[in-house]
């Protein structure tokens, strides 16, 4: 048991699928306000860890503590309400909604309109209209922050891949998370878009004070922005440390470059 208060930590997390240990006794501590990255080859179990955190999978054993509470066993929507938002490796946007509506859905937990006030919204002064207007202001700020003006009223299904990735990031931000899980945010982006992404992630950390947990394959991006890095392979942790330490570690090099 940790004796001091910790923002987020995982202890001995394990989950197996039909005899395959997807995640095997993984544990780490994330400092509030930092960027913590998880790296590893394909199939190493990175996304599985994210799915355990957001409540989509239930781990076989271990603990996930967020703000002093064990969140294992909670439903995904409850975990979202605690302030954990995420993006997905293979985009999970609401494709037949516009960018605006996608981001507004991100405000879901903060809004109050229920079925009755929603159905009877006819005037400017009505509760639902006020609710919509108030939260739209917040969403417009995110649209400005991520430069999404051009996509605002377009259906997201037809937008370029990089833009869709950004909208997913925006939707997660709209939830006002304390902890943000980004699953390969730069996949499918060109180098210019990646540069922008680095700035935005930095902005989110510095200005919004959001703690970020990152899965990424782009080593340059990882080394640029991470405070700490955990490398895993076959579900097992290889090592954890600062970017400089991880870069030099022989096991990490082996996992990435193969044995000679």
């Amino acid at each position: 048991m940790p004796t001091t208060y910790q923002f987020f930590n995982i202890e001995n997390l394990s989950i197996s699928f039909g005899g395959l240990m997807a995640v095997d006794k993984v544990g780490f501590v994330v400092e509030q306000g930092s960027i913590f990255s998880i790296i590893g080859p394909n199939g190493a179990g990175k996304t599985t860890i994210f799915n355990c955190i957001s409540g989509l999978y239930r781990p076989d054993s271990g603990k996930i503590n967020f703000s002093g509470e064990d969140i294992i066993g909670l439903k995904p929507h409850t975990i979202a309400r605690l302030g954990i938002a995420r993006t997905f490796q293979n985009i999970e946007l609401f494709s037949r909604m516009t960018t605006m509506e996608n981001l507004m859905l991100g405000r879901h937990i903060h809004m109050k309109t229920g079925i009755w006030s929603g159905a009877t919204f006819y005037r400017r002064g009505s509760r639902a209209a006020q609710d919509e207007i108030k939260h739209r202001e917040h969403v417009e700020e995110i649209i400005d922050l991520l430069d999404l003006q051009a996509a605002r009223n377009q259906f997201v299904g037809g937008l370029p891949y990089g833009t869709q990735k950004l909208i997913e990031l925006g939707r997660a931000l709209a939830l006002e998370p304390k902890l943000l899980l980004l699953d390969e945010p730069s996949a499918g982006m060109n180098s210019e878009e990646k540069q922008d992404l680095i700035f935005w992630i930095k902005d989110i950390q510095d200005e919004l004070g959001v703690t970020i947990l990152l899965i990424e394959h782009d080593m340059k991006l990882i080394m640029d922005i991470s405070d700490r890095i955990l490398a895993i392979n076959f579900g097992k942790p290889i090592m954890e440390g600062t970017p400089a330490e991880v870069q030099k570690h022989p096991e990490v090099l082996k996992a990435y470059l193969g044995e000679d």
């Binding site: 989509l56 439903k75 995904p76 929507h77 979202a80 309400r81 938002a85 494709s95 937990i109």
Partner: peptide
Amino acid sequence: RDSDIAAETMGVN
């Protein structure tokens, strides 16, 4: 309808 997984991780019960 569009993505129930994304919906629940965004706080939709």
